[in-house]
Design a protein around this nucleic acid. Structure first.
Length: 268
DNA sequence: AAAGTTGCCTGCAAGC
DNA sequence: TGCTTGCAGGCAACTT
């Protein structure tokens, strides 16, 4: 499911039901996720008050009393479901709060993870690049991240150390909006192109968040509502269909093993 | 059949 | 020659 807008949508859905509450009971049905769930996962979290439900890149970051930290990643197919029974298919972890609220983490492909950190820190959060919607994300910062790279700009933007939170969909949409070919060497982009890219990334992410993310298959808000940004895709998943700008055909190719969609005329 | 993820692995090429 | 670095590609987890 989830790139930055989808995770942000999940965070926003979880915050009102979790913030200020305590975890009363946590049941782990499966410990063998992408990385093993710690054996003391439930024991560490139970009884603690939830101070903040946050997000960094594609990670959910939940701060609790005593400096405890819950780190979640939804992988490809992970969902957080408010009010779930906890016994549905692939509901690997069930979180119960002290007001009787229940949230289930469901993930058929089990490519997500749930782990513990401390004092706002976790090894997986280190080395992440700038948050694209923060003020600190500027053309100068992105230029720095791309400098000297021979790698294709498509691949560079998927690198979470260059900019945090973009995935296959939003890289494709951002490069289209900026008019830049995904095949260009990252280090070859000119200043004005990087400026356009920063603007495009921000705009695409903000529009996607406003739409509740994109629902291709698995993504849903925790309350069950679906995102609808997929109806606004200019290029993603639209191979052979007309480019919204020039009417030429959208082309699909494979880069670093992932599908790339672009318009060969509008993206130079 | 291909899919929104990402850490780890291999292999290759280039640079020093 | 070997060592390092950068990059591409494959794999793994599963269901639809």
């Amino acid at each position: 499911m989830p790139e930055l807008p989808e995770v942000e949508t999940v965070r926003a859905g979880l915050a009102p039901v979790w913030q200020g509450r305590r975890f009363a009971k946590i049941i782990v049905h499966r410990f063998d996720l992408r990385r093993p769930v710690p054996a003391d996962f439930a024991r560490i979290l139970e009884g603690r008050r939830i101070l903040n439900v946050g997000r960094r890149a594609k990670y959910l970051v939940v701060d609790l009393e005593g400096g405890a930290l819950l780190l979640g990643h939804l992988g490809m197919s992970g969902r957080m479901i408010i009010g779930a029974g906890g016994d549905g298919p692939h509901q690997h972890i069930v979180f119960e709060t002290d007001d009787g609220g229940r949230v289930a983490y469901a993930d058929p492909r089990r490519f997500g993870l749930m782990d513990l950190g401390q004092d706002g820190r976790h090894p997986l959060l280190e080395g992440l690049g700038p948050e694209p919607l923060d003020d600190g994300f500027s053309a100068a910062v992105l230029a720095d991240g791309l400098a000297g790279k021979d790698q294709a700009i498509k691949s560079a933007l998927l690198d979470q150390g260059v900019v945090a939170g973009l995935g296959n969909i939003y890289v494709a949409e951002s490069l289209f909006q900026a008019g830049i070919s995904p095949l260009r060497a990252a280090g070859s982009l000119k200043g004005d192109e990087i400026g356009r890219l920063v603007t495009a990334i921000r705009d695409v992410l903000e529009r996607a968040i406003a739409a509740g993310g994109s629902t291709l298959k698995d993504h849903a808000r925790p309350d069950g509502e679906l995102g609808y940004f997929q109806h606004s895709f200019a290029v993603y998943g639209r191979a052979g269909q007309p480019c919204p700008r020039c009417r030429g055909a959208i082309v699909r190719l494979v880069q670093s093993g992932r599908s790339t969609f672009h318009c060969e005329i509008c993206q130079a």
